[in-house]
Structures are given as C-alpha cells and as structure tokens.
Design a protein around this nucleic acid. Structure first.
Length: 569
RNA sequence: CGGGGCGUAGCGCAGCCCGGUAGCGCACCUGCUUUGGGAGCAGGAUGUCGCAGGUUCAAAUCCUGCCGCCCCGACCA
C-alpha cells in the first residue's frame, strides 16, 4: 500500500481522555475512533490487526474441529425468557421493540440462539459432539465504558459452543478448547496465562480465564510459584482450617462501652487489640434476605464466594434499614449474638475464640465471644479474599499477585441451557438425555489492546510480527530525489510480488515525520532509502523492536526481510 | 445510580469571574526555502461558542432546563 493513498490519520498529541497506553496509541496510530460512549470505529490500520487476530482464531478453531457459523445479533425476547435470562441478565442487556411492539434484545452472548439452533438440528447421540463458533459483534450496555476498546459496549467477539452427550465428552471438548486457546494466544505473541475463574452469571461449573499479564489490567490474579495453580483473585481458594477447635479456654462474655467506635481500626485502637482478635459482622442482602457474614477483622470478604455459597443472584451490603431491623442498632455495632439473620462464617472463625464483636447495641461491643457457646453458625466456608501471605491451596507453596487483562474465557456450562431450553437427544438406549454444553469466548478488540499494552515503547506500538498490520515500511527520505523514489519503488514492487505486506511511504514529507509515523504505527521492519547508502547501492534495514540496523545492498534486502518474516521475528 | 469535572475551528486549549459582536498552538491550503528523527518564512481558509428557553440595547460570558463526554465509586462473562 502506498502511504500517500492510505486513510491513516496519525496524531502527535496524546488524547486527553485516554489513560491506558493502548487506548492512547490506538487513537494516535489511526487505528480507532470513538463514535459515542463505548462504541468505536476501526480504521483501515486497526481493522487489519483485528483481521490478523481473527485469522489466527479461525485457523486454530478449525484445527480443533470447531465449525464456523454466523448468528443473528438481534434476538427475540422469547428465547431469553425460555432460558430465564430475560429477567436475570439485568441492564447490560439492551432491549427494544420493533414496529409490531414485539420485544427484542441485542445479543450480548449467544447461548440462547445456539441452543435453539442445535436442539432443532441434533436429535441423536450419533450427531454428537459438535462445536460451533462465530465471530460476531456483541452489545453489552456497560454502566461505565472505559479504556477504549478494552471495556466498551459494542465489541467483536469469537464465541464457541460445544455440545456433548455426557460429562466425559464435555470434558474432552473443554480440553480441546483449552489447548486451542493456548495456541491462539501464543501465536499472537502474548505473555499470558490461564487462571481458574468464577463462572459468574453465565452459569456453569468450571471455568478458566486467559489473562494477558499487564500492570494496567483490570483483573487481579494470583499464582503459585511452586505448582501450576493460578486463579482470579475472586476465585482463588484458601486452604481449609488446620484445626477444628479453638485452642484455648473460653472466658466469660463481657460487654464493653465503646462510644462512637464503629470500624475495625477504631475498635482495635480503642480496645488496644490486634485486628485478628476482632470479628467483623457484615450484613448482606441476598436476594432481599438478610445474611450475616462473620469474618476475622484482618480479612476481607470475597463477595463472589459468599454469592456462590448462598446460591443467590443479587448480593449487596445491606442498607441501614435492614441493619437496624436485624440488629436493633445502627451501622457499626453488628454482632452475631441475637441477630435476626442467617449466620455464615469464614473458616478462620473455627479457630477463633474469645474474640471481640459488635453487641447489637449502639456504642457497645462484646469481649470473649465464642462461636458455638454464644451463638450458632449455620455453616462455615471459605468466604474471604486470598492474601499474598496465604499458602497455595494446592501445594502450600508461595502465592504471588499480578494484574491481567482477560482476553478469553472458557466455561463448562453443563446442562443449564440445555435443560432450560430442552436441548435433548436420544442415547443408544433410545432414552432422552440433555446435551452437556461448554462455551468459549475471546474478546478480539481487547486482545489487540492487550497486545499493545505488552508491546509498546516511548515512540509507539511495537507489533509482534503475527499481529502487525504490515510487516515492512519502505521510507525514501526524500521523494523528490528521483533516484531515491525509484529505488524505493523497486523494492516495494518486488516485496509486493513476493506477498510481503508492505507500505511504501511515498509522501512528500520530511524524513523525521516519516520515521515518527513508522515508529508510532509499529511496523516491525523499516527500510530506509537515503542518498549516502544508495550511492553505494545500499539501503538501511531497521528492526522496530530493538532498533537494530543492517546496511545491506539493495539486492540483499528482500531475502533478508523474507527470512525474518518467515521465522516470525 | 451517587460524587466531581468538561463541552469554544479537525485536535489540544484560552476567553466566561467583571456581558460589548471570538482567539492561541498544532493540523489544513498556496508560494518560496529546507530535506536522515514530528522544518522555516510569507500569505490564506476554517466556528449553529453542546441544545433549548430566559434576562438584557447587547450573551461564549449571567439564569433555568435538557443533552453529550470524561474521572472516582458502585456494577460486570
């Protein structure tokens, strides 16, 4: 492509409303433009990169035995009512009516559509397993879109759905996708790792997220440096309690006056005790019902774990009215004794004795509270957020924290959708059985943004070769010098003929401008045609990532570049 | 949805407090010079001042309402 003919509006200035490097660079490099909140256009350069990612995904999905389909983005309400998600999905689901006043939504995901398609097309175990995927635009009406294409409302996604006859088959399908995803992100040149994840409202039993490691990532993950364990922080398990019994004598319960002392910090300072001697009583509203969650003062509640333990949909910290209703006291003095709510406790409470707790009475706390003796706990569970000082739940090794960008997610769905929507088949014995499903997503735009987060420097983007929109840019330093233009043209034509993706920067611009743009858009190799080298029949080849320069005779340039492109470096 | 901020040329911003008929930098167009890391000089074009209403002789500026965008929080496959 001739630069002079490209639609490639690059910018020198950092956009004021973009904070992430990837967001700033995608705008500056002329890859994307925002149309409205959370909705972006891809310009030619950006779209080429999108297509590279899509192509890698297609090749690996096909290789794993999946087949490509293309499903509608506009979906009827009935399907979502059938699965139950018309009610449960919430405001992220953009709903609207057509001229006949029928209800529809824009697809934020396609479990309903694919399940409907498959239940009508598959009747027998002989037709299983199947894995269907598509690359489609999704719409999720995010509360607060941000970070450019990283968290937007309209976005491109690859989603795949597997259908198996039984659990064992579903496990195999899941493994296949797990491996395909590893290949996909490896081919994209990303530093990533799969981590165990919560399956969230999409339902299902088991899932992994693919995290591209980046300090700017929105997700916190932890991983063990001794074994393979890695998990999203909200999922990360904590090893159960060592002992089951408090290891000291229970002292008599005692009420202490604690005027205006509400937070754990205030309690500790006022009573001169350590945080782990205090028990926090957090009152949640779980689907509208009050639940008291007990946890040690120095620990933090993991709401995802609480939600999963209770099996509820909505979980919020209780409003003041609810707190008053169950404790007969204002916020800050809640305790387990006499509370009118279900009580669940973190495992760590099993080993706690003679602790400090709110008295359910304004300006009072209790000393020497002992679970079992003083109140009854409905159940103990792992309910807190893992800390870096906790041991690995698998091997006891050291845990480390890092941040990541979620670019892919694989789920075992089980029969959640097949049951709800009656996706059944007949087995060998002629008995009707539900298909066992899995679903597998990759955020395309987000993968591109994540690649930039990991591959940029002060001058701009540094594309990994497999994602680069072009491999080579040829830069004659002065197009008015006929000899320079002609030499550049010559190399350009011969590279084009060999199928190399190449830009000829034939603009009548100063060399500095061209160099800056070439660096900004991150083309892996630049061939500079300048008067001094050309006088000796040579040209300069420069590698974007390292700045490494090779002065080669014109006849060598082509082979030099093709070798490197073939090797993918 | 709660808190904060911002809407003025393609982009980034000043002007608003204290009302008087709109400006700066970059980008853009023309010419000359320059030509290996975002050039110089000269000339030029570019605006429903977010929208609607109100106050006033006069509104970018003051008042009211609305819309949009950004940041923090809550939320989230």
């Amino acid at each position: 492509m001739r630069y002079s003919e490209m639609f490639l509006p690059t910018g020198r200035e950092v956009p004021s409303d973009a904070e992430l490097a990837s967001h700033q660079l995608m705008i500056r490099a002329g890859m994307i433009r925002k149309l409205t909140s959370g909705i972006y256009s891809y310009l030619p350069l950006g779209y080429r990169v999108i297509r590279k990612v899509e192509q890698i995904i297609r090749e690996e999905m096909n290789r794993a035995g999946a087949q490509e389909v293309f499903l509608p983005m506009v979906q009827p309400a009935e399907l979502w009512q059938e699965s139950g998600r018309w009610v449960h999905y919430g405001k992220e689901l953009l709903r609207f009516r057509d001229r006949h006043d029928r209800e529809y939504c824009l697809g934020p995901t396609h479990e309903e559509v694919i399940t409907d398609l498959v239940r009508n097309g598959i009747k027998t175990y002989r037709q299983l397993p199947r894995n269907l995927y598509q690359i489609q635009t999704k719409f999720r009406d995010e509360i607060r879109p941000r970070f450019g294409v990283m968290r937007c409302r309209e976005f491109g996604m690859k989603d795949a759905y597997s259908f198996d006859a039984d659990e064992a088959g579903a496990e195999i399908s899941y493994r296949k996708m797990f491996e395909a995803y590893n290949r996909i992100f490896t081919r994209c040149g990303l530093n990533f790792r799969p981590v165990e994840a919560d399956s969230g409202s999409i339902g299902g039993s088991y899932s992994h997220e693919y995290m591209v490691m980046a300090d700017s990532g929105e997700d916190a993950v932890c991983f063990c440096n001794a074994c393979q364990y890695a998990a999203n922080l909200e999922k990360a398990e904590i090893a159960g309690p060592a002992g089951d019994q408090p290891s000291g004598p229970a002292l008599p319960l005692e009420e202490v006056h604690t005027p205006g002392v509400r937070t754990i910090e205030e309690v500790c300072a006022y009573l001169q005790v350590a945080q782990q001697e205090v028990v926090k009583t957090l009152i949640f509203s779980a689907d509208g019902e009050p639940v008291a969650v007990l946890i040690r003062g120095d620990h933090e509640v993991n709401e995802t774990k609480v939600r999963n333990h209770l099996g509820c949909d909505a979980l919020d910290l209780a409003p003041d009215e609810m707190i008053f209703k169950v404790t007969r006291s204002p916020r800050g003095f809640a305790g387990a004794i006499g509370i009118k709510a279900r009580i669940i406790a973190d495992y760590s409470l099993k080993e706690t004795y003679n602790c400090i707790m709110g008295a359910n009475r304004e300006d009072y706390h209790l000393r020497n509270v002992n679970p079992g003796r003083d109140f009854k706990v409905e159940g103990y569970a792992d309910l807190r957020v893992i800390r870096e000082t906790d041991p690995c739940p698998r091997c006891g090794g050291e845990i480390h924290f890092a941040r990541g960008i979620e670019v892919g997610h694989v789920f075992k769905l089980g029969t959640k959708y097949s049951k709800a929507m009656k996706a059944a088949y007949l087995d060998q014995n002629g008995r009707e059985r539900m298909m066992v499903m899995g679903c597998y997503g990759i955020g395309i735009g987000r993968t591109v943004a994540a690649a930039i987060e990991q591959n940029h420097d002060a001058d701009g983007i540094v594309w990994p070769l497999p994602l680069a929109p072009y491999h080579v840019i040829i830069t004659p330093v002065n197009v008015k010098e006929r000899s320079l233009s002609e030499a550049a043209e010559g190399i350009y034509r011969s590279l084009l003929e060999k199928g190399v993706e190449v830009i000829l920067d034939d603009r009548d611009e100063r060399a500095g401008v061209k160099f800056k743009d070439a660096d900004l858009i991150g083309i892996p190799y630049r061939v500079t045609i300048g008067p001094k080298n050309l006088a000796e029949g040579k040209a300069e080849t420069r590698r974007r990532r390292t700045g490494e320069v090779a002065i080669l005779s014109l006849s060598e340039v082509e082979a030099f570049l093709m070798d490197r492109i073939r090797e993918g470096i």
